[in-house]
Amino acid sequence: MAQKRAREVAEDVVPGHVPPAPPRLDRNAQARLGEQLRAMYDDLLQQPIPDRFIDLLKDLDDIEKGKSTGKGTTG
C-alpha cells in the first residue's frame, strides 16, 4: 500500500517521470471497451428515478413553500 502510494506520488511530482506503465492498448481495443462501458452505463441511466428521491425533493419543496408563505412577503 505504502509502496503504491509512493509510486503514484512519483508519477505526479517528478517531471519527466515515466511510470512503469502498462503497454498502451490499440485504438480498436479501447473503442470496444468504451462501447461496452457506455452500454452498461446507459442501461443504468435509463432506469426511472425511484420515488424515494422524488418524494425527498418534493417534501423539501413543500417546506420551502410553507416558509415563504409564513414570511408573508409583500409584493
Binding site: R27, N28, A29, E35
Partner: peptide
C-alpha cells in the same frame, strides 16, 4: 483500461477500423 482488456482478453480487430469518436469518448 489495460487491466480490463486483460480480463476480457480484448484483442485488436483490424477489420473494425479505427473509431476515433468512441476512442475519444473512452
Amino acid at each position: 483500461r489495460t487491466r480490463l482488456a486483460q480480463l476480457l482478453a480484448v484483442e485488436s480487430v483490424d477489420d473494425l477500423g479505427p473509431d476515433d469518436q468512441t476512442r475519444a469518448a473512452l
